[in-house]
């Protein structure tokens, strides 16, 4: 399991992005009937919340390098994939933007370029990894959760690199 820590300096708060591998029988509630095969996939989740409605991000199920955040191209490898998810979560949470807007109000109505340049440097992330064993189990997975994550992309102002 890989755990990435995202520290927001303005809030003095640390968020996490967790990437883990699972091997389970996946029940596709709204898609095809479950075929009983064990599927192997990555599950990506975060403690960050969307700025637009303060809701949690849906857990993302990654089976291929095409299972990328909304608006992103196919990943070239797993590093590219995880980095894009981190970027997407930070973008949707507006971690950088929230810090820049607070500095704007205290400074006065200074230029936009000042606020936008400071927004990207306010958050930093580090990561760690660990391992443990797991056994297979049956997991309910609704494809509606995937569609909801897709719809959230419309609120992103600049999702792609």
């Amino acid at each position: 399991m890989a755990t990435i820590y995202v520290f927001n300096e303005a809030e003095n708060k640390t968020y996490t992005v967790t990437v883990d591998v699972f091997g389970t029988v996946v029940d596709k509630l709204l898609a095809l009937p479950t075929d009983g095969d064990i599927d192997y996939y990555l599950r990506i989740s975060t403690t960050m919340r969307k700025t637009v409605d303060n809701s949690a991000f849906p857990v993302s199920i990654v089976r291929t390098l095409d299972d990328v955040p909304p608006g992103y191209p196919t990943a070239t490898d797993f590093t590219d994939l995880v980095e894009n998810y981190i970027e997407y979560y930070m973008d949707e949470s507006e971690l950088g933007a929230s810090t820049s807007s607070s500095s704007l109000s205290s400074v006065s109505s200074s230029s936009k370029s000042t606020s936008s340049s400071s927004s990207t440097s306010m958050s930093s992330f580090s990561s760690s990894s660990s391992s443990s064993s797991s056994s297979s189990y049956i997991e309910n997975w609704s494809s509606s959760s995937m569609s909801s994550s897709t719809s959230s992309s419309s609120s992103s102002s600049s999702p792609g690199p």
Partner: peptide, 26 residues
């Protein structure tokens, strides 16, 4: 969490396992 795949040899009555873990390193 990682995925452990168990392999059982009927002829030898023995099990082995392979572990797939997703990690981050330099």
């Amino acid at each position: 969490m990682a995925v452990n795949i168990q392999i059982y040899s009927n002829g030898n009555s023995a099990s082995k396992s392979i572990t797939f873990n997703f990690v981050e390193d330099v």
